[in-house]
Design a protein around this nucleic acid. Structure first.
Lengths: 260, 260
DNA sequence: GGCTATTGGTATTTTATTGGTATTATTCGC
DNA sequence: GCGAATAATACCAATAAAATACCAATAGCC
């Protein structure tokens, strides 16, 4: 457990002879460690017992300090699991290069992620879908829609459309659409992604639990097989106030590149 | 199976006495091996049993680690066949000039583009600018702001800040900021760009000739010199209804064979 | 085609570690 | 002296971590 969490004890000893109650000293130490970023959202604190023995005070005293911070929303406790720094709702950023792993990205920030299925089924294709996916009106389209949730806050709506021939049973997708496609041998090799902004409509806003009219990031992605055939068509809507897309650009070649 | 997959066990033993749960250690080892390219997309992992006996831990523990990575989309499992590194979408390197080339982009859509200057001058730096550009309060900052117009429709507002030392006279910029920087030998080689959505404020909306509150794309870009120094800091606002950012993603992996 | 070794998948149990709580002693201020 | 805040002790409950034993699908060989 050591790591950077030991910083707690450094500041603790520093104020040891202040005369203030022990639990207040400890509380301040922990608070400082969080505020100074020594331990960030999602990080685990040492167990109450560990803190107690290391600081040489009773566990109940530790508990008092910790509980205060839990009440204040600074920490989160999970019975049988541990004590953690409460995640803050700040802008989350996603690098464009890792667009496929929402789950991983969020987990790295100490957020508990889950998805709620909005839709999983086979339908008659819309004109849009027929055009993009190259379907005839007699074929079916598989639609997979889910709400992405981080720390009980809905962050995004993802709606994917695929030809039913590549995803005959939309219900048995695990957590990754790409993994499911991989299993059936339909591997996209290329995708074009289009990012724009749009005001959220009523139904989307309701799903994302924000007022209607708020700005949202609208991402449209079309994935292609090696054969050039379109395999997937995804429209995602991200909450504009909680999500950043980050791209790192590199200037290639000499300065003669076309410029504005 | 041996090959490079054995690298997993090397890093595993390395962190053996970290005290962390076994399955976390293993998960990290595998994750590292993938991230460092020791095992690439499509490559097979040793079987769960092999990993278990080699690392001298239970197979269920191996399973826990592997499953986490499957959930995160890093690995793919096929019952009766094996565990494989999942394919991954990667953003194609996009040249700096290309992404910023408003003019070129619009011209491709057959639009007549022009710009209107909103501001060109030297100012005392704001705290933001001092921080990002690394300026002291006694130095000056060059601000360049312009309205981008296509077919007589305002599309975007670009506001750039630079140290006055690299752009002593903001007034003599031609049509390209980058060209001006090139002349003084200050060529950015890298930039980090952050795309988000936000509702347009009153003044920006007025400039863009849209009603306030409409969704806009907010792009923040920080450009770096080869030395690592920040040279430019641009905040742009695009009309969300009239502009798309397009990125092409490519799936990395074994091109043909090697597919399980 | 069908057998078989090998693969991942699952259910169940044990153990250690975590937070949760009730109860009691001490200290300090009024 | 009384009472509230402080601190310590001992025990309870939930969860995670790990191991065992067995099931099911796939691939490959004959």
């Amino acid at each position: 457990m050591s790591e950077a969490a030991d910083q707690i004890f450094a500041t603790l000893r520093h104020q040891a002879q202040s005369g203030a109650p022990l639990y207040l000293q400890l509380r301040k130490s922990i608070e400082d460690a969080v505020n100074r970023g020594l331990i960030g959202p999602g990080d685990a604190l040492p167990s109450e017992r560990d803190i107690a023995t290391k600081a040489d005070i009773s566990r109940v005293t530790v508990r008092k300090a910790v509980q205060d911070l839990v009440k204040g929303g600074i920490l989160v406790q999970r019975h049988g699991s541990g004590t953690f720094v409460a995640p803050r709702m700040e802008r989350v950023e996603q690098s464009l290069s890792r667009l496929t792993s929402f789950t991983e990205d969020m987990a790295r920030r100490g957020m508990v992620v889950r998805s709620a299925w909005l839709d999983r089924g086979l339908y008659a294709p819309s004109p849009d879908e027929m055009m993009v996916l190259g379907l005839s009106s007699s074929e079916l389209v598989a639609r997979v829609a889910r709400l992405r949730i981080a720390n009980d806050t809905p962050l995004a709506i993802e709606r994917a459309s695929l030809s039913a021939s590549v995803l005959p049973d939309p219900a048995d997708i695990g957590s990754s659409l790409y993994a499911a496609l991989e299993l059936t041998g339909n591997r996209p090799v290329r995708a074009v992604q289009r990012i724009s902004a749009a005001n959220l409509g009523d139904s989307d806003a309701r799903l994302l639990e924000v007022p209607p009219g708020i700005a949202g990031l609208h991402i449209e992605r079309i994935s292609y097989l090696a054969s050039g055939k379109v395999i997937e068509f995804t429209r995602s809507i991200y909450r504009g106030d909680a999500y950043d897309f980050v791209a790192e650009l590199r200037l290639t070649g000499p300065s003669e590149e076309g410029r504005p």
